[in-house]
Design a binder for these strands. Structure first.
Lengths: 144, 144
DNA sequence: ATTATATCAGTAATAATTACTATTATTGTT
DNA sequence: AACAATAATAGTAATTATTACTGATATAAT
């Protein structure tokens, strides 16, 4: 693994993302940072955003339309997306207490909720089985 | 508004999506349909998928990686995404009973859940205010 | 200072999606 | 069944988002 080196550009990207709450796309962030670094490259923005996401310093998500957004807040929380203006707002993690909170949005949501989606991420039963098979075949197939 | 006309291609796209459970992307669907319609156009697939989604006959979603998937099931349900093989599985709507089901995935999930996200879609307070202002300004600003 | 290498700017390449256009298919009407 | 109106298509070009590449520059350790 190669050691990380400081760079003013990466620092600026982190700083910029830290001081805004609008969950910008890579391009929106690029346009903003250009006021400070007039000739920063869009590729540099992408590379650092993905690097920071891998390091867990920021999070990246897509809110359904295919575009990817970035967020400095990494602790678990939910998002509210306005279908009218496209704004993405943070919602406190604890707002969902029961299923009915999901269905009607509960009272903590700053607007009208029409629908919601939930995605679970992990490893499916098939992949778990395959992996344990690779690690210790004798358990899965004692004849061997 | 222009009237909808039948087309064998659109029928085939619906049919194909109806008989599979793997939430394909537009391109995956295109490759599959080409066995029946060897010279169907990728643009035709995109156009019809988006049309059907607007009509509410199918649903479209992105599971975080940026790619857009399509689903013939339009009634509310959740998704489980395997980070290992990329499979997208349907989860029954009623599986989430309380917050702890969200956090640890509960027992209804066919695999190991590491994380989850929730997106609420609707209209934010700002847009709601603006809209009501446009419709009846005298209420918002009686002096006028 | 010297050296090694991570990072950069700029550009080219790739992938996903949409737009355009001349042609074909569908539907309602004679 | 032929006709006219137009929705839909195939094929291609254009657009957008993102990644890959390359020679130059910045950073960190010796």
């Amino acid at each position: 693994m190669k050691a990380l080196k400081y760079s003013r550009q990466r620092e600026s990207i982190k700083n910029n993302l830290m001081h805004r709450t609008d969950h910008p796309t890579a391009d929106a962030l690029y346009l903003s940072i250009r006021t400070e670094f007039p000739n920063i490259s869009l590729g540099t923005v992408y590379r650092n955003l993905n690097l920071l996401a891998e390091l867990g310093e920021i999070s990246r998500f897509s809110c359904g339309d295919g575009s990817v957004h970035f967020d400095y807040v990494t602790k678990p929380h939910y998002h509210f997306v306005c279908k009218s203006c496209g704004a993405v707002l943070d919602l406190p993690f604890g707002m969902v207490k029961k299923t009915s909170d999901l269905v009607d949005g509960g009272e903590a949501v700053p607007g009208r909720v029409d629908s919601h989606t939930v995605f679970f991420y992990g490893e499916c039963a098939d992949c778990m089985r395959k992996k344990s098979l690779e690690e210790s075949p004798e358990i899965a197939d004692p004849e061997k």
